[in-house]
Design a protein around this nucleic acid. Structure first.
Lengths: 329, 329
DNA sequence: CTGAAAGCGCTTACAG
DNA sequence: CTGAAAGCGCTTACAG
């Protein structure tokens, strides 16, 4: 059996209370005593039982992180940012991937909630009617979705999309295609609205396809739709779809970056490595992750503070090789 | 405050023991009693405190999973397989990404160990001298690394590499380049040895570069080395490196799949989507993940069983568009 | 089938 | 500065 606090107390001839205080380091204990206790605990290989600790103290120093799909390259940078920020603040992060199953989000959140101090839920797919139940699991922070009455970090797509559409317009494109993301995605409704607004403002024709899942294969399917129409420029819901689109168009002999222009969203690491490199709208995932940690830890310390903070982050266009002047008609 | 077992007991006028038994479902309780308790608990919104439960029962129904880098596409399929298998067996998975920092593996494992029933560590980077400490954190299963005296699921690269080298030889390649993975990677030492054996057997010249980190950027660097030598075929430590290599060669005007042949390892989802599509050695990550869950749960149930099981999985070559006959000299 | 009691390993007022 | 005691919320022999 593992060494317990009581074992250490017996070994040094002191009470468990004192040992506890000496080891947790916060309260006043005689320096010599503390020193001795520390040494003995060390020698005995004592490791505090975190489960017992969190049962009494109510704190676990753990943050739970729920993401829809770690295989989507949009999420790893956020996850890494959350981990690095949390670790800087003395917390450990426990990740859970719900594999794009909306129903699992609430279930995972419930399972995790009791074991962590706070929860961060990225791009929740939970239907709007179940959102209040999730939001009630305080302290909780949502990333990439606005949830009424809950703390959130949201990413404002409109500037980036505005820039993207202007970029295409300045290259002479007249008809722009938008490939929609998942049907009930909050991000997609944002992006779609921004597309419509930008095209209306610049007097461009907008063609929409989708919904598509954020997966390469969906982009492959989209390519054939795009190819069958008279389209010279495409903005995809995300880089995954854009990559699939580019691969399939190339396969069909369409030269991306001359015959057709393609823009992704997310600016994921692979966008700079594709051929041609992918023009993409940068989404500040790293900043979003770090901010979410700060918000959730604030909530842990001040659970009753209201209203809940909402942080908005902005996006911008990164121009690479997949966009070019519209071909002459 | 949340509803506790005692609250429910008071509400139904029974002891906490009975309520506990009724809800956990294993022991014999009067059917009517159980029914009533269940209903009341439900109405009151009772959710058992898992922390308290695991303090007394010693079980958490949680499995910890430690991976080096979730951004590397090799890991998500393994993670998803672990999650799906665990969930089928009534367990929840908590993931931790150590961001390729070997020292973090032991630290995370220690933090997690007390809160989970068992641990799965994928592709551990921990130096061999610290491995015993990790292995001592029973129950633990290692994936993709053989650890003395510990349960593990290992992936035997040799067949796949043998097939890859034979494939290149049959296409007329005489000199083959191997791009080594990380310096202290167990997989790389396996792969390197298999490369040397296969080339020796088939009487091919082997050129080695590296070590390289398993990242696209490393492949970009490798491309320039490869380009400066008289090489017609490359096998990379993994798909990430192969993708970077292909992108950079293409950029420099070398046609992958005719001027030069490239083979990756991992057969990650993106290998079918690159242009050209990447010939790659399939590594059964999904099977490895599911197997690891079975092994770790066996260990949880029979902690004293020795010797620890070691499962070997095999690899095979998937031929796609990035390999072609050697160009005439 | 049900209850009273002890205990899991720690923390935290309360005294001194 | 230190100790005794209570308690966190549950589970589990032990009786009955």
């Amino acid at each position: 059996m593992a060494v317990t606090l009581a074992d250490v107390a017996r070994a040094v001839g002191m009470s468990a209370s004192t040992v506890s205080r000496a080891l947790s380091g916060t309260e006043k204990v005689n320096d010599a005593t503390r020193e001795k206790i520390r040494r003995v605990a060390q020698e005995m290989g004592y490791e505090p039982n975190q489960v017992a600790r969190s049962l009494t103290s109510g704190r676990s120093d753990l943050i739970g992180l729920i993401v829809p799909d770690i295989a989507n390259p949009f999420f790893p940078p956020i996850i890494k940012a959350v981990q690095s920020r949390a670790s800087a603040r003395g917390k450990t992060v426990l990740i859970s991937d719900v594999d794009e199953h909306p129903a699992d989000e609430i279930q995972r959140a419930r399972v995790m909630r009791k074991r962590v101090d706070g929860l961060i839920v990225v791009s929740p797919r939970t239907p709007v009617e179940s959102l209040p139940e999730l939001a009630a699991l305080q302290p909780i922070v949502f990333v990439n979705r606005k949830v009424d009455g809950a703390a959130s970090v949201i990413i404002e797509a409109s500037e980036g999309i505005q820039e993207a559409v202007e970029h295409l317009a300045s290259l002479g494109h007249k008809r722009i295609c938008y490939l929609n993301g998942p049907r009930r995605s909050w991000s997609n409704s944002q992006r779609q609205a921004a597309m419509r607004a930008a095209c209306a403002e610049l007097n461009l024709e907008l063609v929409e396809f989708g919904p598509f899942e954020p997966q390469i294969q969906a982009g492959v399917r989209a390519a054939d739709l795009v190819h069958s129409r008279d389209i010279t420029a495409v903005i995809a819901y995300d880089d995954m779809i854009a990559m699939g689109l580019m691969a399939r168009l190339t396969e069909r002999g369409v030269r991306v970056g001359s015959d057709i222009s393609v823009i992704g969203i997310d600016d994921s690491p692979m966008s700079g490595m594709a051929y041609p490199t992918l023009t993409s709208i940068h989404v500040p995932g790293t900043r979003a992750g770090a901010t979410a940690v700060d918000l959730v830890l604030d909530l842990v310390d001040h659970p009753d503070d209201a209203p809940k903070p909402v942080v908005q982050l902005e996006t911008r266009l990164i121009i690479r090789g997949s966009t070019a002047p519209a071909p002459a008609p």
